[in-house]
């Protein structure tokens, strides 16, 4: 039986899709059978970030409506054979996603996978509430920045009230993933620190993804971060986060880029 996870944030552009692809790939590298689902109807991008944009035939709405069977719509990753993508529809008919329909698809996926990771659209509207509806746990992606922290707080409120688990009186597991973190700026007091964000949101920390040019490089190439350059700081941070997600205890460090000699001599030291 799969664990269903929603990757959510409220705010757009904080790294939900990047993180969905990266956590999915990192879990698949641990020999887990993983499916990632794009819930951003009309603005799908998970296919692009995973380099599968030219292989989309059927999508989530087709499966919900019974036009396609689930195995026909799932796209198997070319690099990792236990990683699958269920893309969103690019049509604008968001109402085609019904609560019952999504529930049926998620139930079917629970039988086939170890992990089902739902990439939520930004906002707090229908798409976002449907993405979180059937989740067992949530990864809240947050930048150390005021608007992102505020929106994360709002999303935490929704997770605690609008999910099936919350309505049954159970607790949904929540994990905070801080992305685009710049340790040197935080040390200088120019950026909210990890402790600030944790104290404000009171959600346990899943990982810290440092700001890095590797993230843009990975999406340019259509490769999840852990696969594009496994030694890079964000790749190691995502791999650690995936291990914590699966229950391992991993020391919380902020991976730093391996610096060149010149940078070591003249660059600022990371905290």
């Amino acid at each position: 039986m799969a664990k269903v996870i929603v990757v959510t944030s409220g705010k757009g552009g904080v790294g939900k899709t990047t993180s969905t692809a990266a956590l999915g790939a990192a879990l698949a590298q641990m020999d887990q059978k993983v499916a990632v689902i794009d819930f951003d109807v009309g603005l799908r991008n998970l296919d692009l970030v995973m380099g599968a944009e030219r292989r989309v035939v059927f999508d989530l709405i087709n499966v919900v409506q019974g036009v396609a069977k689930l195995p026909q719509a799932l796209i198997r990753d070319k690099r990792l054979e236990s990683l699958y993508l269920l893309p969103a529809s690019q049509t604008r008919d968001k109402d085609a996603l019904t609560e019952d329909g999504v529930g049926r698809v998620i139930d079917e996926m629970r039988e086939r996978f170890d992990w089902v990771i739902c990439d939520s659209p930004a906002g707090i509207e229908r798409g976002a509430t449907l993405a979180m509806r059937y989740a067992d746990s949530a990864v809240i992606v947050c930048n150390p920045e005021v608007s992102s922290v505020r929106d994360s707080d709002r999303i935490i409120g929704l997770l605690d009230s609008k999910t099936v688990k919350a309505e049954k009186g159970e607790r949904i597991d929540k994990h905070l993933l801080i992305t685009r973190y710049d340790p040197s700026r935080a040390t200088r007091g120019e950026m909210l620190s990890i402790d600030d964000v944790l104290e404000i949101l009171s959600v346990p920390l899943l990982g810290i993804i440092p700001e890095s040019e590797e993230v843009l490089r990975a999406s340019n190439l259509g490769t999840p971060v852990p696969l594009s350059n496994a030694d890079s700081a964000p790749a190691r941070a995502y791999a650690d986060a995936a291990r914590r997600l699966s229950g391992e205890t991993v020391d919380m460090t902020i991976p730093a880029e391996k610096k060149s000699l010149l940078n070591k001599l003249f660059g600022r030291r990371a905290a």
């Binding site: 920045e145 922290v149 505020r150 707080d153 200088r188 007091g189 120019e190 909210l192 600030d196 404000i200």
Partner: peptide
């Protein structure tokens, strides 16, 4: 240049 404490305080009050 430490604007982070201001951000933190504003967020705490607002939230």
């Amino acid at each position: 240049s430490s604007s982070a404490p201001v951000a933190r305080e504003r967020l705490q009050i607002l939230l």
